[in-house]
Amino acid sequence: MSKMNMVQAINLAMLQEMAKDDSVVVLGEDVGVDEGVFRVTAGLLKKYGEDRVIDTPLAESGIIGTSIGMALAGLKPVCEMQFSGFSYLIVHQLEGHASRFRARSQGDWTVPLVVRMPYGGGVRAMEHHSESREALYATITGVKVVIPSTPRNARALLVAAIRDPDPVVFMEPKHSYRAFREEVPDEEEVMEIGKAEIVHEGNDVTIISWGAMMRPTIKAVDEYQEKTGKTVELIDLLTISPMDSKTIIESVQKTGRCVIVQEAPKTMGIASEIIARINDKALMYLEAPVKRVTNYDVITPYFGRENYYFPNPERIYQALEATVDF
């Protein structure tokens, strides 16, 4: 066990998987000599050499397209998009090929690749460095989308993603990269993709979030519980797609109330899908309408204004209050 931040934890997952399995290769822009612009790939080039840690030319579609080829030929590419805002050219290859090889060949061809990408706000950088577009990837059937929230689950989920036989988009909340440390076991730890986690149990309301929004959510929940004496059931979604309906539905059936916190814009987001599932299976249990706390339906603001737009603990607190007191 040692305390580490999310950057170190993700790095540990890659270091260990590369040691175990020589089919794992890492590729992307500036992942080798520079060790990634966030240093997530630190030490990999030194340890595993240029054949396994590849500084590619600057071409996102090229990175994913060649990764698909590598995966078809038995390698396990873990590729990095420098920022999610520069990843959209890969939709072409993900939607057109990575997601479909299995179905297309009735299971004979599979594409076990991982695309890691930092996403979300909070780093005072230029345009395209702060958006949350998990919904875009989640619409691609056949591609899994995972978003960790802490160092420990980031490590354990990335290991699972690398071992997963299907393509996984692994979105890293860069605002949480160095925000805090957590004990991460030295020995192998794997979490199952497709499972949400009940961070703590409660009876009065369910609150669901993921990624960087877990921190303001926890803050609001702590304060709300302390002030009101109510108990909140907090769920960390962890896998966006395929979504763990069971955990969500059971919780909402128990509490009868639900708040969802999402960094992305309001419309057509993951929160909308969660509400649709509650509607399918738990509508009759609801004591109040499900509330969303989200960004607004605007082009992600430059950093000068982003704090006005992203959910904050105050908004989340008010949503809890409104839902419980409905």
């Binding site: 822009e29 500036d30 520079d34 500084d55």
Partner: peptide
């Protein structure tokens, strides 16, 4: 291009 020298770009 950030850390990638010209000769590795093309």
């Amino acid at each position: 291009a950030i850390s990638l020298p010209r000769h590795k770009q093309t």
